[in-house]
Design a protein around this nucleic acid. Structure first.
Lengths: 347, 347
DNA sequence: CTGTTAGCGCCTTCAT
DNA sequence: ATGAAGGCGCTAACAG
């Protein structure tokens, strides 16, 4: 008498036999498809419960045989952070290929609502799912909503459109990020007093505006010794940012801290170094890059706030895959945290 | 003339036809199994390459039909952090169940090398993989190595045994964690001077010893205004820690900071509050719990260093699954970072 | 409303 | 050294 090969593992067939129905019926109940009497539904559900049946994910996937196409709509001019996300996509591509899903990447002008919206309208319908670095603009919202209406899964990436019907936002709470920057500046300065400058790329970008809001909240309400200067915009560009810093340094001799909300951190750091102010001005920016890494090591930057590009890229892919196959997603895993990175915990 | 249903998707059968061999041979080549002539191997590999064939993960998993059993060996007395990991395992259990893998949890005395080692010896061989919160002791190392020798996949969790043959360590770099605490203390204190206390659970635990080492490095070499007191041990216990803090506060009127290396943070915070020193003593500890969360909100704690229990639990499960099925693991995803958590970026 | 049945793509004996 | 063929567990036409 030998052991049963499947000792303990309940299969759909077992449920069917036990409930006195066919496998097709169990399958219908399992997926809430119509065409089964209520009484039967209950009986099958009970049996599933009683036997503790769990469908074999791989078998289901194979039998379903669906393939999905996803598209990542990214900004045309990739800064280091965006480039990092795109780079991660190649790893993800092979992970997805083994699951018969594929991704395309389309680049478009993020600052141009019209261009972004028409990209979505033109290409969106070809895909089962879209991840888009969005611009919060009515035109874009409508484009997203139409895709959702047509059955496409849409997730926003890095920059959200909260009023849209997108299924999910992959990114951080940018107000909290701004607040975090504010607190770190306040704490690092101790009891020093003076001016705090904020440099943004463009305050038309929702994430930049939100970070500004956060840092203003904290500095103005909790650090009375510090005065926040009016934000300046440097279009995420190193040269522009350098020039801005030079102007700020001469105009405000008591400048004690700089928070760079967007990209172009290199320009700021270099300007500080050239002015010989790198050590005494507290400097906080976003995203771990080779350059910010170096700035942290040598003490030009005091902290970097980071949303792991790898995590975001993987999360977007996982969420698209799960939602378009209506599988469950692990909420905690898809939560993107604001990482505070200093010299000692660099990844 | 209708489109081919599988347009563009290469299957193992296609490779076989194209290479002029049977599917069995392709399968053998694919998995490096013996019994194929060198010339054939090359030909098949070329074809795979040329066609860009990627095996369908779900089909492979189904056909293989393997089930694996994993075991998490956890400390008997669960502190909040460990309890959190165990709690996460129930979510993970259902994820794994859908992949025909299951996990058991065994609790044992982590401080007792003998007990831990014999637990591993007794139960280990029943499993395909083990995740163990290890104690770095020769007896334990041998037990781990024997399991590995016998073909069990072993990963260490939270606390490593670097000299063992474990396949992977799921946890943070604790020296870096200590350094991070040191830098934060130094930065938060600004130019204040005084004594810095370090409270550990037990310096026999590798992770505690490493964190101590890290904080010592930073404080002694970079903050000459600060004096690190000799570490005290409070066995991760609230009552012990409270008593220790009371003693420290009276003995050193110029105590300016406390770093709690292990658990029992509640005891320390409460002692500080009762002594009316909560606001002026910089206090840094580990792990986000309901209590540390509250301490951060009200300003008793200045920062919490955290290794996400959810991330660690999931990572251990993913790594065990991947390694025991020899599938690739995504290195970056399994890298556990040291999270710096302040009031503003609480998860 | 319910059952029958033929796959999904790969792996694995068992032959040859 | 290689091939033929029967599953793995679930899904979805197609019947009834």
């Amino acid at each position: 008498m030998r052991l049963l090969p499947d000792a303990g593992i309940v299969k759909l067939k077992d449920v069917a036999r036990e409930a006195g129905v066919s496998t097709a019926t169990v399958d219908r109940v399992l997926h809430g498809r119509p065409g089964v009497r209520d009484a039967t539904v209950r009986r099958v559900k009970d049996t599933i419960e009683r036997l503790g049946f769990q469908p074999h994910a791989a078998a289901a996937e194979l039998a379903r045989g669906r393939r999905q196409r996803f598209c990542f709509v990214m900004p045309k001019t990739l800064n280091l952070f965006m480039a990092d996300i795109v780079a991660q996509l190649s790893t993800i591509r092979s992970y997805l290929a083994a699951r018969r899903a594929l991704i395309d990447v389309i680049e478009t002008d993020v600052f141009d609502a019209e261009a972004l919206a028409s990209t979505l309208e033109d290409f969106g319908p070809r895909y089962d799912g879209i991840a888009v670095v969005a611009l919060d603009h009515p035109r874009v919202r409508v484009a997203i909503d139409e895709l959702v209406e047509a059955g496409t899964v849409v997730v926003t990436l890095v920059s959200d459109v909260p009023s849209s019907r997108r299924a999910h936002y992959v990114g951080v709470d940018n107000i909290a990020a701004g607040r975090t920057a504010g607190t770190l500046i306040g704490r690092f300065l101790g009891n020093r007093t003076g001016k705090v400058a904020v440099i943004a790329g463009s305050l038309l970008l929702r994430d930049h505006a939100e970070r500004l809001f956060g840092v203003q909240q904290v500095i103005s309400s909790e650090y009375s010794g510090l005065t926040l200067l009016a934000p300046v915009e440097g279009r995420d560009d190193d040269a522009h940012n350098s020039a801005l810093v030079n102007r700020l340094l001469t105009e405000y001799p008591d400048l004690v801290a700089i928070y760079n909300i967007g990209a172009g951190t290199t320009g700021i750091g270099n300007a500080l170094i050239e002015a010989g102010r790198a050590r005494d001005v507290v400097f906080i920016g976003h995203d771990v890059t080779p350059q910010t890494r170096r700035f942290l090591m040598v003490g030009v930057m005091d902290a970097v706030l980071s949303q792991s590009p790898g995590h975001e890229a993987r999360s977007a892919a996982r969420v698209l895959l799960a939602l378009s196959r209506n599988e469950p997603i692990i909420a905690e895993q898809e939560q993107i945290g604001i990482d505070i990175v200093i010299r000692d915990n660099l990844p």
